[in-house]
Design a protein around this nucleic acid. Structure first.
Lengths: 334, 334
DNA sequence: TTGTAGGCGTTATCAA
DNA sequence: TTGATAACGCCTACAA
């Protein structure tokens, strides 16, 4: 900037004014300065600007695995919303490790990101001293953290599971089992509990059949086989997330059993499998958007108490929720 | 840092030394300083450090759509490699628009990112004045740019298509058609050209049947129907990327025709569809890794001429490449 | 309309 | 082993 100033025979301040389109520069001065800027290819150093202004115009997103479609969709939404608001997005992965998450968060705080959107790895208390001391606004997504209330965006796990069970029941299923993911995950436990309580509330017969992950391929095959061979067989399963849905589909294919199925999380091609798979859809795009909205409210000075937003889920009805006997025989159409 | 210095009765420089683990600080001094740091919760301001040192320890990834699994997998790989090297990753989406891409790139240059990994939106000459003037190392991914040679990582489009055609031919297919994506995309054109030349080289009968996107659902249904009704019907299609594969699968389902199929890009569940889908797999993780490797070589001073790396593809053989008549009738197993 | 001085928080240099 | 001082490039405040 100093170079430009010298070349254009003005002070740095004037150059600064031109660069930032501040008013109060004579037209011809501005043109002269712009000319020099273009000629020598000057580009403002945002680092210095940031240092002076205290705002980095940057937010960060911390997730478990950027390649997981659920998170990458959240990421895409967060990036878009950030870009609209002239902010850049740093993405970081903690790979599910609370330790690594702490390191990552410290790094981001050191960079003075303006705000954080975090899918918390563990359920450590929200009062991570590093973060809270920095005063950086933070919005948790997908799962809450323990301790004092924090801004959080989660999806309606209980509602989602309820819609799944009710759908199956409406189609005549009575013996319904639940295949959850690893019970270490909050969402997995939430969905399990929802399943159990709805199962009981509806007075469905028999014990509640619940198995949590991680599911090896063999376990799953054996389990499904056993359920299918019971005296009054299980006729439908609900799977706790996309990972489990895929595993269950593979296992069913392998065992050769055909059960009713409602999966948690929509997935590409759910409609091309036979029978097409009915799912509980949670919309990652809306979740990401909502989180950014919340975050920027804080950045703009919103001081209201921490808020937990529960995003609704939507049941996408396809064929797999029907009772097996009601399915048309395959290749019905000539 | 000044606060810490005062509190610990040392100079800022000593604090700096402690924070950066520089040698030459007496043990007890260090302990005293660390004590103060912990007590008052000091955190280094990386913005200032960056300003002073000139390195941001940040690289950026610019893609078209972060939600596209192909790019998000690249993103995950790039982030991991960056993290390993103590760098942070800014992700940005240009949404396929060259104009927006330019704005995005300028923003990143202003931030003085150390390096760029870019999936170029247009095919504008590589010598984007903004970027090249800044001297920021840049690696292009997935498609090259025109103009003087640049570091580029692409996948072996011709090889992938060849493996697809050869596989189909080996299974007895002779009338093979190609459904490409929008010919505006470089990769789409590459694959089309590869198809045409291999089709000719193998002396396959008839004109080469090639249709490029975008494909509306209706067009596709009509097209497939027409191919199937020809006097000597098309028995197999090759699809130019995952988008087209999905569209083609839907269309086939809708028309009720069953053709041989080899898709470009692997996708989840390719093995659960019936028949399971044979695909040409390009490994986004390796592509991302390779790009970062290349980038950091430049960052470390590698001055060798620009290099284009062609990553191999792999044919994942499933069922859909077989000749229709050789497929076992459905429900063969009781 | 333009310019000057000072400081943001850190590190490099050089001196003690 | 430690410290004083000057940058890094920009913006704020104030003055001319």
């Amino acid at each position: 900037m100093a170079d430009v100033a010298e070349e254009a025979h003005v002070s740095v301040k004037t150059v600064s004014r031109v660069v930032n389109r501040e008013p109060g520069v004579r037209r011809d001065t501005e043109l002269r300065v712009r000319g020099v800027i273009d000629r020598i290819g000057f580009m403002r150093h945002d680092g210095a600007r940031i240092l002076r202004q205290g705002r980095t115009q940057t937010i960060a997103l911390v997730v478990e695995d950027l390649a997981n479609p659920f998170y990458s969709q959240i990421g895409a939404a967060v990036e878009r919303e950030a870009r609209i608001r002239q902010h850049q997005l740093i993405t970081a992965s903690a790979e599910g490790s609370p330790t690594r998450e702490r390191v990552v968060l410290e790094g981001l705080i050191n960079r003075r990101v303006d705000g954080l959107v975090v899918v918390p790895a563990g359920e450590r208390p929200a009062t991570d001293p590093t973060v809270s001391a920095s005063g950086t606004p933070i919005v948790y997504v997908d799962r809450p953290v323990r301790g004092e209330p924090c801004d959080t965006v989660i999806s309606d796990n209980a509602g989602g599971v309820r819609s799944a069970v009710e759908h199956l029941v409406a189609h005549g299923h009575r013996r319904i089992a639940f295949l959850g993911d690893n019970a270490e995950f909050w969402t997995a436990r939430q969905r399990r509990e929802a399943f159990v309580s709805i199962h009981d509330a509806l007075g469905l017969p028999g014990d509640t059949r619940v198995v949590m992950g991680p599911h090896s391929s063999e376990d799953l095959v054996e389990r499904l086989g056993a359920w299918a061979r019971e005296r009054t067989p299980v006729t439908a399963v609900i799977t706790g997330n996309n990972r489990v849905t895929l595993a269950a589909l593979h296992a069913m294919r392998q065992v050769g059993v055909q059960m009713g199925l409602v999966g948690y999380d929509d997935f590409e091609l759910a409609d091309l499998i036979e029978p097409s798979v009915t799912v509980v859809h949670q919309d990652p795009t809306s979740i990401g958007q909502k989180a950014v909205l919340q975050l920027f409210a804080r950045l703009l000075g919103d001081e209201s108490p921490a808020q937990t937003v529960v995003m609704p889920t939507r049941l996408i009805v396809r064929e797999s929720g029907r009772l097996l006997s009601s399915l048309p025989p395959r290749k019905a159409k000539p």
